[in-house]
Each structure stands twice: as structure tokens, then as C-alpha cells.
Design a binder for these strands. Structure first.
Length: 765
DNA sequence: ACCGAAAAAGTTTTT
DNA sequence: CTTTTTCGGT
């Protein structure tokens, strides 16, 4: 950008402004005072936001980029914004700017002000697992029956309080505590908070909560941040909770230069404390606010937009927007009615192959399958594996949540902080050192008596006769190890430290000696962890990253279909979107409905809206008549959302004579409506089903050709054989069930694959 | 203290 | 159905 401050007029001639439409331009140029940008799906929201940020800099309104605070909701959105801002400004990085998730920015502030809330600067951020273990300990100490009051649900209560910006002393008596945990819920909350301070730790909610305490109890500190942040940008405002809202309001109350971007129709995090009310109330909260609507959609065809708009119109209490597009009408939304989840996965696989046949250069990255719950991804994985169709599951099991990685991190945490009892407990007997329950109980007692962390208590106990000689010797060795590692931390690089700790602790050795098939994969993960450590300047920096960003960036892996939850898909777009599992109970989700009633139903509907509006060219919705849940079969009926779609935008293709009057509003093109009187009945033997089968088989299968190419020479498949798979690499055959092999892959873990997709290991090289 | 078997629980969604 | 937790025997 230019060195010289520009007036709005000269900046108006900047190239980056020329590409904006009228509403976007208004959003970019209305720099001063509060602005609410109501941006519908696909209306160029991120472009407006990033350009606005560039424009603040270009017009010389701030002396340095550090005077702009820009917050997003997810790490993914933060990354996207960083990249786009950098690209727009022609820089290679925006490192050090105040641009990130609410939680990461709040953590940064809290590091500067930790003492104010009784924490040390090097406090640890606990993950969900640690939180739960901590609460369980408290339940045990307070003699609260965790059968009757599961720690998980009590934890949720605490989290909801924190989401609302409430500390224990601010929770009012009538505030939901009721008879929870035998009426001792509030006391439990207080004990939990006290324990966190003792541990020099905080949880996710505390990052925001402690910030609020700092701002409210220390006017000097708040004034300092007012001096620092002259402009505030907020993405996905509809997803903010009360604590985040208060945080923003405190930070913006001096300059009022706050711009919130959001779409009330895409609010899908109510279950996590998000308040749609924040966005609905904006004009009241920030007097004189300008409201700008972005309504021109650049993403989807007319039909997709019409279907999505028709669906979301069933919600009440919307701010209301009219999305429009100059794009063509496009294809109708297709609705597939199928027998069960397996058939659904098979048909979607076939649809993708049809698309591939139609366009041999098709980039699979333009295709996504968006599901309601993570467990739905399995059926697709299994099917795509047999088809040899490349896919990626976005947001699947996370690297930092794996057992071995968490153990390794616990070692590092203990090295880094003597206060981290949770980490200490986790690794004290891993590998086995003969320090079991009895020893640990003794340690806890001593720690409580002396008022010191477990690590210190351990040191103190060594001088007494309380422990049995064997345990004492073992514990002494461990303490000595940690002291040596802490010395090493001062001199050696943190990579070297990590390697040394893992090696000398015997942790690596433990996995090397482990004969289970997971062991090699776990060692591989530990190696990867060391690689991740190497990317950070300091151990503290690495640990902070791990706790705030649980995910690991996956390498771009070429052309692959994406499978992910609807939540994970927000903000993304694809040419073709498959939306399976539109069944009552699954979507809308029964559990959600039970908890949240009508409010929750509307949120589910918004989730459907989000799913549909991810599609650029085509959307294919499907539902199954039968679905397996924890091993038992459930018969299901189509989601009410199916009926809420405008009939003239939808084409129904139900193969099975299972399509009935329940959603006659759609005017069917059923292939077998005469069976079962249009009810969801049917058996595998029914004529409708048999006919559906026939019809299926008439479609040529691509995998037939593939199978001939890859077939393993007959008879060579045996348990124990080494094989190679083009996606998972090398592995050993564990089990053979006809054509289905269970293979323990060296890197990918255990998978079921068809014999036709592996070759003997020797031949592959 | 440790190991295995048996029982129970769990599936929303994420920082 | 899978994964985690609990229990009882050594």
C-alpha cells in the first residue's frame, strides 16, 4: 500500500475498489461508526471484510496494522482472512496482526494481564478432556453421584454460564442451578474455578471470561486496549455468545468503529451458547449504526437460491433478506429416496462416477458430501474405498486428540510448568513405573495438605517413609528426570528437548515394545509431533498453538471428494453438493429437538439452509427409509425439511415404491408409487425393491473395470501377508472375509478394503 | 499393580 | 456396533 495517507476520494480510485458492487463498496467505505453488514450466503462477505481492512490501512486511518482488531469464529475463517488480506496487500504474511479467532485473541490479551485474575503469565489452556477429568475429580471429592449427574452434562452447564459471561458470583440463585448435582451446582462451579486457578490453568470459556474481568475491574487496562484498537472487524457475528458480545462492546465503547458481518439465517451454533439475539439487537446496542445488506449472490444458480430461500422462509424472527442472482436458473434440486444408508452411499458414489464420465477432467475438489453428524461419514468412506474414489474427511479425528500425542504433550507440559497436575497425573505411570492408584492417592493427600502442586508434593514425599521403597525409588527417578529436562530446556532447542524427553522417559520404548497393530502408527504420529514442534520458535508457542488450534493442516492431496459435517462446511462452496440423511430424527436431529424445542428446530432449518447454499451448480438431497443406529435398525421417514422445499424447484427420484403421500406436496416422479399405498413399507423381497435392484444394475459400474486391473493373484491373500494400497500405502493383512480384507496399514491404521484394491507388497516396488 | 474380560455407555455440531 | 469404563482375579 501507499506510504502516504489517502483521502477517501483518491482511495476511491484504487483498483481493489473497482471490483466491488454498490453494496460492497458502501460496506468498505463506511469506515467510521458502527456498521452491521448483513451478508447473505455467497454475497462476497469475506471480500467486503478484507477489502474494508485494506481500505482502513490505505486511507491512513491507523498508524499501524496493529490498531485493527479482526476476529473470526473458527480457525479456518481466520486463516482464510489472513490469506486474503495478505494477497490483497501484496504481503507474504500478516503475522503479528490482531487477526484471529475470538479465543486466540482473548488468550493473547490474557497473557498480558494474567496476574489480574490470579493466573501466571504461563497459564495452560485445558482441552475438553482435561476439563472433564478435573470436574470428575471434584464430583468424587464432593461425593456427588456421577451416575445420576454425569460430569459431561454438568460441564455443559458450567460452559453455558461462561458463554453468558457469568462468573460464580454473578450466577443468580434462580439461574438454572435448581436441583442439578443435588442443588450443589453453583458450589461446584465455584470449586471448579478455584481449582483452575490453583492449577494455573483456564478453559476455553475462561479466555473470554477473564478478559471481561480484566476490562471491568481495571479501567486502565481497558483504556490501554482502547488506545490500541481503533477499528474492530467481526466475522460471523450471528455466532457470537454473550461473553463475546460483551467483550466486543467493552472494546468498542471508546471509538465505536466496529463492523460486524453476519447472517442471521446462518446462525448454527446456538448449542454452544451463540445468541442470534446479538445480531437482531445490533442497532439498539450500537446507536447510530448503519445497516448494509449484501443481497446479490455470486455463488449459486437461481433454483438453488429459490429452494434455499423457500426453506428458510419457514423460520420466524428473521431480519429478512432477499437474495438474488444474475446466474442462470440451472438444474432442479434432486431428491433421492433410498432403501438404507448403504444404498445412499452407493447411489451417491454412482452419481459422482456419472459426473466423472460426463467430464473426464472433473476436479473432485468441487464435490462435497455434507452430513448432519460425523458418524454418517463412515458409510461413505467404506463405499468410496471399494470404489477407489479419492475422498477426504474434513475435521475427522484430530491429531492432537490422539492418545499418544496427548501423552507426549503431557510430558512437555510438566516440563514447562510444575503446576500442571493434570498432565503430571496423566504420565506419572506411562510407561508403567509401578506408580499406581495407591501412590497417586498418597500424592494427592500430600499435595492438598501442603497446598502445593502434585510435582512438589512428590518431591516432599521422597524425604519421608510414607511410600513403599519401590515406589519411592521409582518416583525419585522420575522427579530427577524432569529436573534434568528442565535444565535442558534452558540450553537445548525445544525440538531436541522433545526428542530427549520422549526417549529418556521410556515413552517411545513403550510403543516400540507394544505388539498391537496400532503401535507403528502411534510411533509415526509421535514423529510427526516432533515435526510440528519444529515449526514453532518456542515450546510455549507450540503448546499455545496446540490448545487453541486442535486441527492440523492437511496437505493438499490432489483431486478428492470432501466429506464433512454441515457445521464444518460453513463458509465453503462446491459445484456439486450432496446432502444425505434428510430424515426425521437425524436431520432435524431428535436429540437437539428434545433439548431446544422450537428454537432448535429453527437452528436445524438454518443448518439445512447453510448446506443448500454451499452449492454452486447442483444440490442432491437424499433420505433413506432405514438406518442403522448403534447396531439396531430404525425405520425412518423423510425430514420435514423435504416437504418445505418449494415443489417447483425439486425433482423427485424415488426408486423403490416407497415414496408416498407424506410429501405429496412435491408432486412426485416416483418410479414405484403403486406399492405399499405410498407408505414407507417394504422388504427386501418386495417387487419394488427387486425392481430397484434391477434398475441399479443396468447402470454400468466403473469399478468393474478397475477391479480387473488391480486384482490380486488368486489365493495369495493370506492373513499376515504384506500388501500395498494406492491410498493407504503398505500394511499387513489381518483378516480375510471373502473379498473383504481387514488390513493394518503402517500409516493409516486399520481399514477394511476390497481385495481388488491391494497388491502384494513385493510387486508394488 | 497389572492384566484381561465383561459390562456399559455413547453420537450432534467446535473454540 | 464400537469405544470406554469397571470389575475381579492373579
Amino acid at each position: 500500500m501507499s506510504e502516504l495517507p489517502m483521502t477517501d476520494e483518491s482511495a476511491g480510485r484504487q483498483a481493489y475498489l473497482a471490483e466491488l458492487n454498490e453494496a460492497q463498496l458502501e460496506a468498505v467505505q463506511a469506515l467510521d461508526g458502527p456498521v452491521l453488514l448483513l451478508a447473505g450466503a455467497g454475497t462476497g462477505k469475506t471480500r467486503a471484510l478484507t477489502t474494508r481492512l485494506a481500505h482502513i490501512l490505505a486511507t491512513g486511518r491507523v498508524a499501524s496494522p496493529g490498531q485493527i482488531l479482526a476476529v473470526t469464529f473458527t480457525n479456518k475463517a481466520a486463516r482464510e482472512m489472513k490469506n486474503r488480506v495478505a494477497a490483497l496487500l501484496g504481503r507474504d504474511s500478516v503475522e503479528g496482526w490482531w487477526l484471529g479467532t475470538f479465543h486466540s485473541q482473548a488468550a493473547r490479551i490474557l497473557r498480558e494481564r494474567a496476574e489480574r485474575v490470579g493466573l501466571r503469565r504461563d497459564f495452560t489452556i485445558l482441552d475438553a478432556d482435561d476439563q472433564l477429568r478435573l470436574l470428575k475429580q471434584l464430583l468424587a471429592a464432593e461425593n456427588i453421584d456421577d451416575k445420576k449427574w454425569p460430569a459431561r452434562s454438568l460441564m455443559a452447564v458450567i460452559q453455558r454460564w461462561k458463554d453468558r459471561g457469568l462468573t460464580p458470583d454473578r450466577v443468580s440463585a434462580d439461574d438454572g442451578a435448581g436441583d442439578l448435582a443435588g442443588g450443589r451446582m453453583l458450589g461446584l462451579f465455584r470449586a471448579y474455578q478455584e481449582r483452575l486457578i490453583t492449577l494455573n490453568a483456564c478453559d476455553f470459556g475462561d479466555l473470554l471470561l477473564h478478559n471481561l474481568t480484566v476490562f471491568q475491574s481495571d479501567p486502565e487496562a481497558l483504556a490501554d486496549y482502547h488506545r490500541r484498537f481503533r477499528y474492530i472487524l467481526v466475522d460471523e457475528y450471528q455466532d457470537t455468545n454473550v461473553a463475546q458480545y460483551l467483550w466486543l462492546r467493552l472494546l468498542a465503547q471508546k471509538h465505536h468503529n466496529i463492523c460486524c458481518v453476519g447472517d442471521d439465517d446462518q446462525s448454527i451454533y446456538g448449542w454452544r451458547g451463540a445468541e442470534v439475539g446479538n445480531i437482531l439487537r445490533f442497532e439498539k446496542d450500537f446507536p447510530g449504526a448503519r445497516v448494509i445488506r449484501l443481497e446479490r449472490n455470486y455463488r449459486s444458480t437461481g433454483r438453488i437460491l429459490a429452494a434455499a430461500s423457500g426453506l428458510i422462509a419457514h423460520n420466524e424472527g428473521r431480519l429478512g433478506k432477499t437474495l438474488w442472482t444474475e446466474d442462470e436458473e440451472g438444474e432442479k434440486i434432486r431428491l433421492l429416496g433410498l432403501w438404507d444408508g448403504e444404498a445412499e452411499a452407493r447411489v451417491i458414489g454412482e452419481e459422482i462416477e456419472t459426473l466423472q464420465r460426463r467430464d473426464p477432467d472433473l476436479d473432485l475438489n468441487t464435490i462435497a458430501i455434507l452430513v448432519r453428524v460425523g458418524s454418517q461419514t463412515r458409510e461413505f468412506e467404506e463405499r468410496f474405498l471399494t470404489l477407489g474414489l479419492p475422498y477426504r474427511v474434513v475435521g475427522g479425528p484430530r491429531f492432537y486428540e490422539r492418545l499418544e500425542v496427548r501423552d507426549a504433550l503431557a510430558y512437555l507440559r510438566v516440563v514447562h510448568s510444575t503446576f500442571d497436575d493434570l498432565a503430571f497425573e496423566r504420565i506419572v505411570n506411562k510407561p508403567k513405573r509401578g506408580l499406581g492408584d495407591a501412590t497417586l492417592q498418597c500424592l494427592h493427600q500430600a499435595a492438598r495438605g501442603l497446598g502445593v502442586p502434585l510435582f512438589e508434593a512428590a518431591r516432599a514425599l521422597l524425604g519421608t517413609a510414607e511410600l513403599r521403597p519401590a515406589a519411592r525409588r521409582s518416583l525419585a527417578a522420575l522427579i530427577e528426570d524432569f529436573e534434568r529436562w528442565r535444565d535442558l530446556a534452558r540450553t537445548a532447542s525445544h525440538v531436541e528437548l522433545t526428542e530427549t524427553v520422549l526417549e529418556e522417559s521410556g515413552y517411545l520404548e513403550m510403543w516400540r515394545n507394544d505388539k498391537t497393530i496400532e503401535a507403528p502408527g502411534r510411533l509415526e504420529n509421535l514423529k510427526e509431533l516432533v515435526g510440528a514442534v519444529a515449526e514453532f520458535d518456542t515450546l510455549a508457542g507450540f503448546l499455545e498453538h496446540v490448545s487453541l488450534v486442535m486441527e492440523v493442516l492437511e496437505a493438499e492431496g490432489g483431486s478428492m471428494v470432501s466429506v464433512m459435517t454441515l457445521h464444518a462446511a460453513k463458509g465453503l462452496e462446491f459445484d456439486t453438493v450432496f446432502l444425505p440423511g434428510w430424515e426425521e430424527g437425524l436431520f432435524p436431529n431428535q436429540r437437539t429437538l428434545d433439548e431446544g424445542g422450537h428454537r432448535a428446530l429453527e437452528e436445524e432449518r438454518r443448518l439445512a439452509y447453510v448446506g443448500l447454499t454451499r452449492a454452486r451448480k447442483r444440490a442432491i438431497i437424499s433420505f433413506a427409509a432405514n438406518r442403522r443406529m448403534y447396531g439396531s435398525w430404525m425405520s425412518t421417514i423423510p425430514s420435514r425439511f423435504v416437504e418445505e422445499l418449494p415443489a417447483d424447484q425439486v425433482e423427485v427420484e424415488s426408486d423403490q415404491g416407497l415414496y408416498g403421500s407424506t410429501f405429496s406436496g412435491l408432486g412426485g416422479r416416483s418410479h414405484g408409487g403403486e406399492f405399499g399405498g405410498g407408505q414407507w413399507v417394504g422388504a427386501r423381497a418386495s417387487p419394488g425393491f427387486a425392481r430397484a435392484r434391477e434398475r441399479r444394475q443396468a447402470v454400468p459400474f466403473i469399478e468393474v473395470e478397475a477391479r480387473e486391473v488391480h486384482t490380486l493373484p488368486g489365493g495369495t491373500v493370506a492373513v499376515g501377508a504384506r500388501v500395498f494400497h494406492r491410498k493407504f500405502g503398505y500394511g499387513a493383512v489381518r483378516q480375510v472375509e471373502g473379498e473383504k480384507l481387514t488390513i493394518a496399514f503402517d500409516k493409516a491404521g486399520e481399514k477394511k478394503v476390497m481385495a481388488s484394491f491391494v497388491v502384494p507388497a513385493a510387486e508394488a516396488s
